[in-house]
C-alpha cells in the first residue's frame, strides 16, 4: 500500500468524490484561486473551475447557511471553514439548523452536507485560533461529528461523509496534515460511527481520537519498551459514538486512560469515562484518568502553549498511574 499524508488523503477523497458525483462541489474561504488555506484543495480550481470550487466572501453564515440550502435542494456541498474557531460565527447553522431540519420537518428535508474544519492547538496562533472544541459539536443529536487520526481513516471517512445524506462535521487537525500512513489504493470507504482498535495490548486501554491518537501511539511505543502493552481504541467518530470496541477492550484490560486535546471539563473524556462506568462498572480495577488540555485559553508563547497541551509524557504517566 502507498504511504501518503493526511493532506493528500483528504485531497484525494475530495477529488475522487467530485469525479464520481457531479452534485459534489466545494465552497469556502480561499478554497479556489488560493488553493486552500492549508493547501488541501491545491489544483482543484484549475481542474474543476469556479462553478465547482466556489471562493466565498469571509462570511461564515453565508457559507454554512448557503451550503445547508444547497444541500436541501439536492446538491452535495462540501463547505470548508478555514478553522473550526470561525465556526463559532456560524454556530446557529452548525448546531441549531443543520442537525434539526430533517427531524423538525418530519423528515421532509435531507441535508447531504459536509462541513470540513481545521482545529487544534500547537501552532502558536493565540487563544482564539487554537481550539479543539469538538465536544461542543458532539453534544447535538442530528449532527455527525467525525475526526480521523490516520490518512486511511481521513480518506475513507471523508468519502463516507460526502456520500452521507446527513450533515457531517469533519474535524481535521492543523498539525497533522504531514502525518504519513498506508492508504489502500482504489475506491474504499470507512463507515461513520465505528471505533477501531489501532493497536492491540493487554494491560491498559487508551481511548482517544485525532491528535490524541498520534500522541497515544507514541506513548504506547515508549511503554512497550518498559513491558507495558497498551491497547489504543480510536473513536474516529464522536457522534454517533461507537462504544462497543471501547467496552470490549476495557473488559479485557480493566484499566483505562482517555486522551483528548480539548479541555478536560465537560469534554469527550468525561463522556467516555461515564459510559465505561455505566456499561462496565464491574470490570473497573482502577479509577479511569483523563488526559486533556489544561483549563486555560491557549497562550501564544511556545513553551506555555506546549505546557497547556497534552503531551506523550502525560499519557505515559497516566498509564502508569492506572496500573498502580
Amino acid at each position: 500500500m502507498p504511504k501518503i499524508t493526511i493532506r493528500e488523503a483528504i485531497s484525494q477523497a475530495l477529488m475522487e468524490e467530485m469525479d464520481r458525483d457531479p452534485k459534489v462541489f466545494i465552497m469556502g474561504e480561499e478554497v479556489g484561486v488560493w488553493g486552500g488555506a492549508y493547501a488541501v484543495t491545491k489544483g482543484f480550481y484549475d481542474k474543476y473551475g469556479a462553478a465547482r470550487i466556489k471562493d466565498t466572501p469571509i462570511a461564515e453564515n453565508a457559507i454554512i447557511g448557503g451550503a445547508i440550502g444547497a444541500a436541501m435542494v439536492g446538491q452535495r456541498p462540501v463547505a470548508e471553514l478555514m478553522t473550526i474557531n470561525f465556526g463559532f460565527s456560524a454556530m446557529d447553522y452548525i448546531v441549531n439548523q443543520a442537525p434539526k431540519l430533517h427531524y423538525m420537518f418530519g423528515g421532509q428535508f435531507t441535508l447531504p452536507l459536509v462541513i470540513r474544519a481545521v482545529g487544534g492547538g500547537g501552532r502558536q496562533l493565540g487563544a482564539t485560533h487554537s481550539q479543539t472544541p469538538d465536544a461542543i459539536f458532539a453534544h447535538f443529536p442530528g449532527l455527525k461529528v467525525v475526526s480521523p487520526g490516520t490518512p486511511e481513516d481521513a480518506k475513507g471517512l471523508l468519502k463516507s461523509a460526502i456520500r452521507s445524506n446527513d450533515p457531517v462535521l469533519f474535524l481535521e487537525h492543523a498539525t497533522m496534515y504531514q502525518v504519513r500512513g498506508e492508504v489502500p489504493e482504489g475506491d474504499f470507504t470507512i463507515p461513520i460511527g465505528k471505533s477501531k482498535v489501532q493497536r492491540e495490548g493487554k494491560d491498559v486501554t487508551i481511548v482517544t481520537y485525532c491528535k490524541g491518537l498520534e500522541l497515544s501511539m507514541k506513548a504506547a511505543e515508549d511503554l512497550s519498551k518498559e513491558g507495558i502493552e497498551v491497547e489504543v481504541v480510536d473513536l474516529r467518530t464522536l457522534r454517533p459514538l461507537d462504544m462497543e470496541p471501547v467496552i470490549e477492550s476495557f473488559k479485557k484490560t480493566n484499566r483505562a486512560v482517555v486522551v483528548e486535546e480539548g479541555w478536560k471539563s465537560y469534554g469527550v473524556g468525561s463522556e467516555i469515562v461515564s459510559r465505561i462506568y455505566e456499561e462496565a462498572f464491574d470490570y473497573v480495577d482502577a479509577p479511569i484518568i483523563r488526559v486533556a488540555q489544561k483549563e486555560v485559553p491557549l497562550p501564544y508563547n511556545r513553551t506555555l502553549e506546549q505546557a497547556a497541551l497534552p503531551q506523550v509524557a502525560d499519557i505515559v504517566a497516566a498509564v502508569k498511574e492506572v496500573l498502580k
Binding site: 465552497m27 447557511g65 436541501m72 446538491q75 456541498p77
Partner: peptide, 25 residues
C-alpha cells in the same frame, strides 16, 4: 414551501443556499 423558520434572519442564508443549488443545477 420550504418552511417556516423560527430563528430571526436565520433562513436568509439558507434561501441564498437554495439559489446556489439552483444556479449549480
Amino acid at each position: 414551501m420550504w418552511g417556516g423558520h423560527a430563528i430571526v434572519g436565520g433562513h436568509l442564508p439558507i434561501a441564498s443556499g437554495f439559489a446556489i443549488g439552483d444556479q449549480y443545477a
